[in-house]
Design a protein around this nucleic acid. Structure first.
Lengths: 350, 350
DNA sequence: ACCACGCTCTCCATCGTTGTAACGTGCGGC
DNA sequence: GCCGCACGTTACAACGATGGAGAGCGTGGT
């Protein structure tokens, strides 16, 4: 095992001072070279760059952060990485951030209200230039609490018209389109699967609204008995809820599930019970997680435009971070979706 | 016209200075309170804490990082968050880190060799006290390149006996146990699914070795035709490889897949082809990702002790970060596994 | 009464970087 | 020949926190 010198170990860091000394210039000139300050003679620049290369100098980001007030890191607050949708979102956010030279710190809230607030106010948020905030437990009534000094861009559909920029998908329209797709295959007894009782906004509320609009738009009435509550949106919850539906003897020929995880959970239970998909029951989900392309049968779903959401959110956040005018009004951006038809909704009934 | 400084306008965040002024003590005393320096009178401590609370003071982590040389952040380098195993690993690492007051910055390498090296040497690594390094593309021959000044703990099975601490699962033993489980259900024509040609170490090489040991231990010969290469270990690759196997007409009655994703991909293809699982073919995977509990049928698998790996890795890293004696020899730690039997391997054949 | 010691707290320097002001120099314009 | 300007560079002072030295003061031993 190689033994490091103190300098290499960082005990005595290679600093701008070292570089400046070796290149025979002042510290500030080194700084100027690194920050592409325009008025530097070409040979000076070259000399400095050579020395930097040679010594393997790398700027100390803590010092830079302290001095400039910017750290080059943003925070992504999500409920849970094990939830595939959020893992994929995190991936997209990191890609979008990397393009702009930003690094991402992920914080998991567990969908817990206290934790969501605590994270926002914790000292960690001081380490970060801006926050992408995707919450599950906060709601419209908490809008004011999100008004912190650090720039925040809100994701998801828990709070509208708040004090910050907000990026979301077109929930109502997408749910309507999914439902119309099912109606288009001739199904009429369609489960609205994943509702949250009395929720008006929030993903569940908005998607249920879109669902109902599809029926109204087609001049049909929807039987309220077919609205199925699913508390959390994990796979197991979907499975459990579907067991309840089957046990109740409720008749249905299609499922519009409000996310993919519960759709997959429900599909498994239906298949165990001998129902054929899509012949007996057609299914469509929401989110277009990777697994939907490989499930048996493959799952029709709504592609919420995850990459565009991430890209837009990071862009807005950057604008707030670098922007000088604080008084640009909060922006609400709705990203386009697509209906993706797969095996689970191919068969048309008469 | 007078130009106001930010401080005068009160735009600037509250610092220790503000707190010190308000509490009528020196800045250093505030610092001492925050850092639990023992010799402080109780009433002084209380007064300072009250002012901190009142002003909502939060320490500036850049400044602390600069002065103390520690940032309180560690980096987790993984190939891809969309890979569920790594998302779950990241979750476990973040939990283990949070316990110790550390934040985690995740870097995705995409399993690309250049990127893996670049990340290790980039200036971002200077923002971080230590690195958890889970690589796919580097190999034994790169061991020396991992010898950087920042403490590193290596995860995975690409490099052994390197210059850093290393936490891994018992690949050989686990694969052997999985295979013995299959042999125990009476299967004999068992696919070794997920091999990488000519790989000796690396997950694939080690697991294949354990697979073969099981046959040898039982005094059986394994037909080399049943060793199936799967290049990447994504679900789609498993599906594709299984299509090839089915097309070739190869006969088999069980699959030991070297990770869950390819097991699930293969299962889907077999089911499409009308094979019943576990009646016609028993399947076991590796990793115990959440989905294995919900697939149809549920998938038997090896639980690699993800949480323990994460916990151990973070602990070792902390020891290196805070440790004074640098010359503690690199440690290799192998975490225990469990065989988890589920529906995909329940039926015993005669 | 004196000294030594421990507790509590302050002062000062310092971490590595960047913003600001200002310096010298060479050049063109008048 | 002087002025003004652009250029290239430097000196100095921050940014907000912490480590170390040591000051003031009360206590106990002698």
């Amino acid at each position: 095992m190689r033994v490091w010198t103190e300098r290499e170990r960082g005990v005595v860091a290679t600093t701008m001072r070292t570089v400046a000394l070796a290149a025979g210039v002042s510290i500030k000139t080194v700084s100027n070279v690194i920050n592409d300050y325009p008025h530097i003679r070409e040979d000076t620049r070259q000399r400095v760059l050579e020395v930097i290369e040679e010594l393997g100098y790398q700027p100390n980001l803590s010092a830079r952060g302290l001095r400039s007030g910017r750290t080059g890191a943003i925070s992504l607050v999500i409920p849970d990485l094990r939830n595939v949708y959020f893992a994929e979102l995190a991936d997209s956010v990191m890609t979008a951030a990397a393009k702009r030279g930003l690094v991402v710190m992920i914080e998991q809230s567990g969908g817990d209200r206290e934790r969501e607030l605590e994270i926002l106010r914790g000292p960690r948020m001081r380490m970060v230039d801006g926050i992408l905030y995707s919450v599950l437990a906060l709601g419209q009534e908490d809008a004011d609490l999100v008004d912190v000094p650090t720039p925040v861009v809100l994701l998801g559909e828990r709070i509208f018209g708040g004090p910050t920029d907000h990026v979301t998908m077109k929930n109502v329209e997408a749910a309507r389109a999914a439902t119309e797709h099912m109606l288009g295959t001739g199904r009429r007894r369609i489960l609205a699967f994943g509702a949250h009782e009395d929720e008006v906004i929030g993903s569940a509320g908005l998607r249920l609204r879109g669902f109902r609009q599809a029926f109204e738009g087609a001049g049909l009435r929807h039987d309220d008995a077919l609205v199925v509550n699913v508390g959390n949106w994990h796979r197991g919850d979907g499975a459990e809820a579907m067991r309840g539906v089957l046990a109740s003897g409720l008749e249905f020929d299609a499922v519009v599930a409000f996310n993919d995880a519960i759709a997959l959970g429900a599909m498994r239970v239906m298949q165990e019970a001998g129902l054929r998909i899509p012949d007996d029951v057609a299914v469509i989900g929401f989110d277009n997680i990777e697994e939907t392309r490989y499930s048996l049968p493959t799952l029709s779903t709504i592609d919420p435009g995850r990459e565009e959401i991430a890209e837009t959110a990071v862009r807005l956040l950057m604008e707030r971070i670098t922007g000088t005018d604080e008084r640009i009004a909060p922006r609400e951006i709705e990203v386009d979706f697509r209906v993706i038809q797969r095996e689970s909704s191919t068969v048309t009934v008469s």
